[in-house]
Design a binder for these strands. Structure first.
Lengths: 227, 227
DNA sequence: AGCAGAACGGAATAAACCGTTCCGTTTGCC
DNA sequence: GGCAAACGGAACGGTTTATTCCGTTCTGCT
């Protein structure tokens, strides 16, 4: 019995590009995009779920990546590169260092890049490249923070390591509607940054910021409970 | 129906630790405590993981609960009851309504009760009792918020639904060391509450708060993607 | 026109996991 | 001694998952 191979009806036909090569090019992107969405919603999602969300078969995925792990590593590395790009973009564009910091954080949060690099950590074995990218990302964030801090825009007990913690908290906000998620994250970004601002009559924060070691802990598998 | 023998209650606590009954009493607590810890760390953890963490066999668990679902329901109901108790405790003790609100939030966060009721939602089928408890919890939180708001302690665009969102964000902070986790949550509780306070020259928040419907969405299973 | 092979969809496979049951053993109480 | 509550953990069936495999479609090239 011959199954008529109906091409996945793409909503909005993709122009003059026809043929297997064009489909392949589209799939390259579709798979990565779907993987990002699916793994962000559930870091332990199955490969089949990614393929389905991408509208492709499983073989289309395995043609591109040797296995699940490599897909995750690719996702994570891309995420870190995005992080670095956003950081570099915001590191000197703004005259006001506080605004620069806030817009940097907003950029990261909008790109939804933090979950990609931390929530997925422990799901796969890290590569050296990942470590280097991560280090560079940390340095850049540190610099942006320092500029705002030295300009006196932040409360005295603020710390550079508060920034990843802000990512962590904002990333925890996740609704079904992506646009609404972004809007709500902006709302609490406003609240958090306002709380971090220097102001008169501020009481001291009741606990010190996390150390870099503590933050690094999270790159180790979070499943280290059983076995 | 056979009447189970009542144990002779030995005077006071400190009964014979060697007895099976004493071990059973200890296991009652150990299992619930381990279940809380394990499921907080991973809502999809296995029953075996809970038993291991509690230091008991699987049968000790199944002797007490008909199945995994009932254990989760018990955990959730207990969590909601704790929530209500904390709320009632803080609803009128403090003369200053802002402090009352802040300490209420701190109480909830310290009890780590929010994750128990929301992150676990969708993992099991909700019971009517759970719905009632949840409604009551919401009302109490609303009242505590309202008092602080009407006293003018909060910024004009703050909203009662910001409170669950604060829980959500603070709950996302989780380190291996429990005490450190609590301390860091206190730190960002300070930041968030400071950002929510009424103050001069405050810019408006850039997005409206979540609606109650949006918040309720999360009680529905989050796995509604595949199939 | 016709062929080689890239690309694909999806069934097949084998291993892992998970909730639950079952059984043999220990232990306190009469 | 003997009964039953309580327990540990192996066994079981069902489901899930990553990966492989095979038959099919279509493109680029000669």
């Amino acid at each position: 019995m011959s199954t008529p191979r109906e091409p996945k009806d793409p909503a909005g036909y993709a122009g003059p590009l026809s043929g297997r090569r064009a489909q392949a090019a589209r799939n390259d992107h579709a798979i990565l995009s779907a993987a990002r969405t699916v793994f962000l919603q559930n870091p332990h999602a199955s490969v089949a779920a990614v393929a389905t969300a991408a509208g492709v078969g499983i073989s289309a995925l395995y043609r591109r990546y040797p296995g699940k792990e490599q897909l995750l590593q690719k996702l994570c590395a891309d995420g870190l590169r995005t992080f670095i790009a956003v950081a570099e973009q915001h590191s000197d564009a703004q005259p006001d260092p506080f605004t620069a910091l806030k817009e940097f954080v907003r950029g990261i949060v909008d790109a939804d890049v933090h979950a990609l690099t931390v929530k997925l950590a422990g799901t796969f074995t890290p590569t050296p490249e990942l470590g280097e990218l991560s280090a560079r990302a940390g340095t850049l964030a540190q610099e942006i923070f320092d500029r705002a801090f030295e300009a006196g825009a932040l409360r005295a007990d603020a710390d550079a390591n508060d920034i990843p913690m802000i990512f962590e908290q904002l990333t925890a906000i996740r609704f079904r509607d992506e646009a609404r998620t972004a809007a709500l994250r902006h709302r609490y970004l406003d609240v958090l940054m306002d709380g971090l601002r220097s102001k008169q009559g501020a009481e001291a924060l009741s606990a010190p910021p996390p150390s870099s070691e503590e933050l690094g802990e999270r790159w180790i598998a979070s499943d280290a409970v059983m076995d």
